[in-house]
Structure formats: C-alpha cells, structure tokens
Amino acid sequence: MTGRSLRYTIETPEGITFALYLAGPTSRFLAWGIDMLAKAALFTLLSYTAVPFGIVDGGLAVAYVTVAYFFVDQGYSIALEYGWRGQTLGKRLLGLRVIDEQGLRLAFSQVVVRNLMRFVDGIPFFYAVGGVAMVLSPRLQRLGDYAANTIVVRAPRPASFEFARTGSAKYNSFRAYPHIEARLRQKVPPEMAALALETLARRESLAPAERLDLMRRIADYLRDCAPFPTEATVGITDEQYLRNAVDSLFRTGASKRDAA
C-alpha cells in the first residue's frame, strides 16, 4: 500500500496483485453503532428468558441476566467475526469485513485478541483511543487490529456496468478490426479508460464547448494509442470515436448480449 491511500494491494506468491479498499473510521463507527443496537436487542431477548429462573429464585434470575449480559457483550463480536468470516451484523450490513493483513482467513486467536483490545481502544469513551490510533495508522488500524495483524476492508462488490448510458450500443466500425481493438485495450491505462467511460456517461451535463473540447482531447489520446484505418474513422465525430473506443474497451460477452 502506498501513502495514505485507502487502496490496499496484496501480492500473492503467484505474483498476482489484487486490491482491497480499507474501511474508513466513519463506516466502522456506524457498523459499531448497529452492533450496539443488535446487542441491546439480543440482551432484551435474553432478559425474557430469565423469567422462569425468577419464578424459582429471584437471585438466580439476576445471576443469569448478569452472566448473559457479559457473554453477549464480550462474545458477540468474537462469535460473529469468527463464524461469519470477519463480519458482525453491522459490518455485514455496511459491507465491511475484518481480514488478515495478508488477505488470509482470520485465525481464532486474531479474532479474540482484536476484540479483547477493545478495552483499551474504548478508553475513555466512544473508542477515542482506537479512533486516534486509526487516524494515525496508514492502514487505518485501531490498537486491536495492530495487535491481531488485521485490517478492516470494504467487502468487494462487482461493479455494475451501465453500458447503455454511454450510447455505445450503436454500430461500431472498430469491431471489424479486432487486432487493433486488442492493441487499444493493451495500451490504454485503466484510469484513462474509466475517464473516457465517465465522460460519455456524463456528456449531457457538460457545457457544449467543454463537451467538444473534452471529447476531442480524449479522442486524440486514444488515436495515438492505437490508430484505426481511415475507412473505420472517416466521417465520424470525436464523440462517436470515443463511443466506439469505449465499446471496444469495455465490451464483454455479457454486455454484447445485453446490447442485443
């Protein structure tokens, strides 16, 4: 991972790199809030189960509630994070997950240590110590994460690709040149491809002059990356060139079927 980026890159022994996105303090705090509510609900339910004990002996019911509260309070996160692979109810609802720093599955000892450290992270109130540690940490780790070698990431969700937004479903003269399309995919960096896609998607919100200028600059860049023959580009505007190029860059079997 570089600098203070939320992108956390892991390289596997096979030499493959993949990226995870660290969860920020706000989303983690919200997840913690949901977990507090879940604990309160669970505790209320358990309190009702103490009624039969109260019939036998009032003291026994108090003892049961005391122990039950303790187990819910301390055991909730440990049990769920271990059983649900790094997720509590709050984390699951907000799409967060605790994972090992190297992307491995959590060991039981990691789950226990990171949760026991809440005693220190929670000092003096509302996770002040943990929050400060998180802000200072390049991997957004509270002390518990630090001791357990864990990080909290946003659980990856496949991107929903709205191909139709770009207007690229029309006839594309570039499709007749698959080898040049392949070169285009190879040469254009992902950031530039994403920029081209976004520009097309937001074209209606651009002022006419800026729209023409932006389309021309991106189209020029793409022409330099992989020039198509004149018969494929003759008579088409910069915007149409961009549409064709985006179609070539992002088209997959699924999107082709969708377009059809």
């Binding site: 892991i10 596997t12 190297q102 992307g103 491995l104 599955r105 060991a107 039981f108």
Partner: peptide, 12 residues
C-alpha cells in the same frame, strides 16, 4: 481471486 487466495493460503 481474493476469496480463493484466502481459502488456499489460509493462516488457520
């Protein structure tokens, strides 16, 4: 790949 990597190279 992340999920498969976790499953195959798991620390547990």
């Amino acid at each position: 790949v992340t999920r498969a990597y976790t499953e195959i190279h798991q620390g547990r």
